[in-house]
Structures are given as structure tokens and as C-alpha cells.
């Protein structure tokens, strides 16, 4: 496993109100998501190892 740390991304400024900030947050999250996915694909990430969501640990976080 390799952890690739990407360059810092400056967020957009706050919106005029909470709703506008939330909308910007969603757009920003999509932008970062696409960047990370592109990086994984570019690095040759292998999805054949996918095992699904991690099961909850009984007695700990179930």
C-alpha cells in the first residue's frame, strides 16, 4: 500500500449564508473526489481486492 499525499487545495471562500456555504462545500467535495480518483487510477490502484464495507465489530461499534 502506498499513501500518496497530494498538494494542498485552497477552499473557496465562505458563502453569504450557511446554505450557500453548504452548496460550495458539496461542489468542493466533488472536485477533491475527482482529483483523488484520478490519482488512484493514474497510480494503478487495483479494485479487484475490494471486499465490501467493513463489518461492525461485535460489542465495539455494532
Amino acid at each position: 500500500m502506498t499513501v500518496r499525499v497530494l498538494a494542498p487545495i485552497t477552499p473557496p471562500p465562505c458563502g453569504k449564508n450557511a446554505h450557500a456555504t453548504l452548496v460550495r462545500s458539496i461542489q468542493f467535495s466533488n472536485q477533491v473526489h475527482d482529483l483523488m480518483q484520478a490519482e488512484i487510477e493514474c497510480s494503478g490502484g487495483d479494485n479487484s481486492l475490494y471486499r465490501g464495507p467493513m463489518p461492525r465489530i461485535r460489542g465495539v461499534n455494532d
Binding site: 499513501v3 497530494l6 498538494a7 494542498p8 481486492l49
Partner: peptide, 9 residues
């Protein structure tokens, strides 16, 4: 925001 992508090889 600093993204870090762990990828398996």
C-alpha cells in the same frame, strides 16, 4: 484541504 490517496498495488 490536503487529499491523500492510499492505493493498493
Amino acid at each position: 484541504v490536503v487529499p491523500s490517496s492510499p492505493f493498493s498495488d
